Simulated assay, not measured.
Amino acid sequence: MAARIEHLVTSGEFTLDGGTWQVDNNVWLVGDDHEVLVIDPAHDAEAVAAAVGDRRLVAIVCTHGHNDHVNAAPELADRTGAPILLHPDDAVLWQQTHPERKPDADLADGLRLTVAGTDLAVLHTPGHSPGAVCLHAPDLTTLFSGDTLFSGGPGATGRSFSDFPTIIRSIRERLLVLDPDTVVRTGHGDSTTIGAEAPHLAEWVARGH
């Protein structure tokens, strides 16, 4: 039986380039009754740990290094013993939030993570940040997109370490080639599908969004 997907929303602050914003984050859990993987533990380690319950936490996966996606990771790791995984290109962002603690292992394009008999493939999708990744779970017809792709367009690229042409290339070459029925479970806000977003690529490019 394939793993199931669970969803938790946590709230807190996103801080970068001297600014601070209140944000709601999607925290995703993939697993079964025995083991689980957490994607982007944001703001509230206690709430995420409660969602994990007494299951074995296989890994804590951070889709990128912005503080609102990693700020609860060390506490969750300390509570559970699970390793924190991050793409090394986002080390500089991680260090802004956790200067005394490094991730435990690197994410890399093509790496496969397995939980509850279900594979998640790591797709390196830079643009929102240098080390941004998405996780593709074909058996679940799902893409966990972090802040690379949202319902309505690409993630923000107006701040440090981001680049608009790069995120467009990542979306075009790595994400829009997936099955149109693939559900895109995002880092913030509502889910969407690849098929719903693909027709709008030219609009995004035109407005430089």
Rank of each mutant, 00 (worst) to 15 (best):
G110N: 11
L86E: 03
I60W: 00
R172C: 07
H128N: 14
T125F: 00
V122H: 06
P88I: 05
V205F: 01
L120C: 03
N67K: 06
G127I: 08
P41E: 07
L8W: 08
G18H: 02
S162L: 14
T166H: 10
D17K: 01
A116P: 06
L113H: 07
K102D: 15
W28R: 08
T157D: 01
V30F: 15
D139W: 05
V183G: 04
L29T: 10
V36C: 07
T166C: 07
T80H: 04
G158T: 05
P83F: 00
A51W: 06
D106V: 02
T148D: 08
L143N: 02
V133L: 05
G19P: 00
V9T: 11
E46Q: 14
T166Q: 12
D44M: 03
L175S: 13
H43Q: 13
L201A: 09
L143P: 06
D119N: 11
L143F: 09
G158N: 01
V122N: 04
T192G: 14
A50P: 00
H136T: 05
A2P: 14
I167T: 11
P126Y: 05
V122G: 03
A156N: 13
T193Y: 08
E197G: 05
D32E: 06
A3T: 03
L113D: 08
R4G: 15
R169W: 09
S151W: 03
G65M: 00
D106P: 06
W28Q: 06
D139A: 14
L123V: 10
G110S: 15
T142M: 06
S145K: 01
T15W: 00
L201I: 09
P41L: 08
T186Y: 07
C62P: 10
P126S: 09
D119G: 10
D68W: 15
G152S: 12
F161M: 11
A132K: 02
V183R: 12
I39D: 13
D139G: 07
E35C: 00
A2D: 13
I171W: 03
S11F: 09
G153H: 02
R172W: 02
V36I: 08
L140T: 01
D109L: 01
Q22G: 13
L85W: 09
A116N: 05
V92D: 10
A82P: 01
T97L: 09
R169E: 15
P130M: 02
L76H: 11
L86N: 05
D40Y: 03
E203I: 03
E203W: 01
R55N: 11
A72I: 06
A50D: 15
Q95H: 07
D54K: 12
V177N: 14
F161V: 12
A73P: 01
T193S: 15
L123T: 08
P165M: 01
T125N: 05
V133R: 10
R79L: 15
N25D: 10
V23L: 15
A47F: 06
P180I: 09
G187D: 07
A137E: 00
A2H: 12
A82M: 03
G19F: 07
G155S: 13
T10C: 08
D68G: 10
L175Q: 12
G152W: 12
T148Y: 01
D33W: 00
A108W: 11
D17H: 03
P180T: 11
L176N: 13
P99E: 08
G53R: 05
L85F: 07
E13Q: 14
V133W: 04
L111C: 08
